[in-house]
């Protein structure tokens, strides 16, 4: 069953076990280098290598690498400028790193036998909490208590405010949840679907000649879903970056 178990691909195992503390005393600390950590390092390494390669030999007539680097730069820069304005551009390194990390992690996960970092909610929740803490801290740092105007939309009659303000606060607090669950759920669902359909190929193929004929259909489906998942990987990284810049816009310009 382990071969066709659709959840098996998400198992985290130790590569270099590092166990600190005493488990009996309740102070155990598991700092093991896992396959998840390995693929995070790989993601950062791929991203860094791509940006260094594309920026190292810059020329007036760009090479393909340089063009790809410049296109990704201007893509994120335009997105951030259109949603957070000129003042939001100081967050460009932050948004660009987030976009790059999520994109490369999603795309690396599409390789067979590779671990998908973003399919674990702990990773996406950490990213979303980072975004929302930057929004809150920068909002208070930049505007002081005027940042709380974010929860009081302008032009709303005073007698509606007792209803509107709690709704605004709840919608603000649900942002990190929806941000993390969207990315995690999309990637998890996609990878499970992929595994389920490739499991059909294996179990039909075990039935003999007729099964081999029938296995063609789920095989075609697997190829189609792989293409769809490549699209989802890019779209989800884009959505994560767009939502981050929209939330940063709230920190830069809190009044509606």
């Amino acid at each position: 069953m382990a071969g066709t178990d659709p959840i098996h691909q998400f198992v985290i195992y130790d590569i270099f076990p590092i166990h600190l503390g005493d488990e009996a005393a309740g102070s155990a600390l598991n700092l093991s280098f896992t396959n998840s950590a390995l693929f995070m390092v790989a993601t950062v390494a791929v991203l860094t290598a791509f940006m260094v390669l594309s920026a190292s030999r810059s020329s007036l007539v760009p090479s393909r690498f340089q063009l790809a680097g410049e296109l990704s730069y201007s893509f994120v820069a335009n997105m951030l400028r259109s949603s957070a304005g000129k003042e939001g551009m100081k967050f460009f390194p932050f948004v660009f790193s987030l976009f790059g990390f999520v994109l490369v992690a999603n795309l690396l996960g599409m390789f067979p036998y590779f671990f998908t970092v973003t399919s674990h909610i702990i990773v996406t929740a950490a990213l979303a909490l980072l975004v929302i803490s930057v929004v809150i801290l920068y909002g208070f740092f930049r505007h002081g208590f005027k940042f709380l105007k974010l929860f009081v939309p302008a032009g709303v009659p005073a007698y509606v405010l007792p209803i509107v303000v709690p709704i605004e606060i709840i919608s603000f607090l649900s942002r990190p949840i929806s941000l993390s669950v969207r990315l995690f759920g999309n990637i998890l669902a996609g990878h499970i679907t992929l595994k389920v359909f490739s499991g059909f190929v294996v179990s039909l193929g075990a039935l003999g000649a007729l099964g081999w004929l029938g296995a063609v259909l789920p095989l075609i489906m697997t190829v189609a879903i792989t293409a769809l998942e490549l699209l989802v990987a890019v779209v989800q990284a884009y959505v994560f970056a767009v939502l981050t810049s929209m939330y940063l816009n709230d920190a830069v310009h809190p009044s509606h």
Binding site: R182, V235, V242
Partner: peptide
């Protein structure tokens, strides 16, 4: 197209929640 993809992802996320 950007708005289209963005709206699609926002809507699709709600379906993902039920899967969750």
């Amino acid at each position: 197209t950007g708005n289209l993809i963005f709206g699609m992802a926002m809507t699709e996320a709600l379906g993902i929640f039920s899967f969750l």
